[in-house]
Amino acid sequence: MSEATATIEHRTPHLTIRPSRGWSPINLRELWMFRDLLLVLAGRDVKLRYRQTALGAIWVILQPLMAAGIFAVVFGKVAKLPSDGVPYFLFAYAGQLGWGVFSGTLSKSSLSLVGNAHLVSKIYFPRLVLPLSTTLGVLLDFAVALGMMVVLMALYHVRPHAGLLLLPVWMVLILMLSLGLGLIAAALTVSYRDIQHILPVIIPFIMYASPVAYSMQAVPASLKPFFLVNPMSGLLEAFRWSLLGTGHLRPDFLGYSAAAAVLVFFFGAFSFRKMERKFADVI
């Protein structure tokens, strides 16, 4: 036993720095070593976000509530779209809940590198820590908004069903998709700040192309194939099905969405790693 501790004490970490070529793997062990930084940065962003606001953290609930309210009036009352037998407000809130994870992760992670340029150029840490830390903040928002969802379901007397158990699966897939896109956007923004101007236009576009405020049932059959190209369509329908039991699970569409999410995530992560070498020189 004493031998073992002695070897640990004498073992100095050895690191070789050399120019890297091509694709490099994601160093999970190193990311784990920097987990405190991940948490501290996420904490910083959360603490700073609502400084000098009157309502503070209430905005986390108020934002999706307001969005759902607008959707319920415009799509439910004015356009009279179907909501699969669930009150439209609840239906729209559930959609907004899943959508918030996607749009929050994508937009926040895309800004995480340029927003922390002073860190990138002055200190070493795995650069993936920055987009990942923003994702933690989004997850915290999600947890709070999910709490509101529970309250709303109780108010509308909607009982949860067994599909709820699959909710984490959809969450992971939505996160992979949005983080994959966010990583690509973040890395590209280092060289081309255009990305930060185009995303605020593209994200609402994707929202209207996804079943956030309406259900897939409301989409004319002739247009459905176009909607289902968007991997978020399958994921959001599944997300809402888990919460409210609306719509149907279509294994083929879901399989496509899941494959796309996994593919985008790994492509994003590896491109990020490839472009990461130039961050400090260019940013």
Partner: peptide, 9 residues
């Protein structure tokens, strides 16, 4: 913070 172009450390 930045990678070398040649050599090793």
């Amino acid at each position: 913070i930045t990678e070398p172009t040649t050599g090793e450390i």
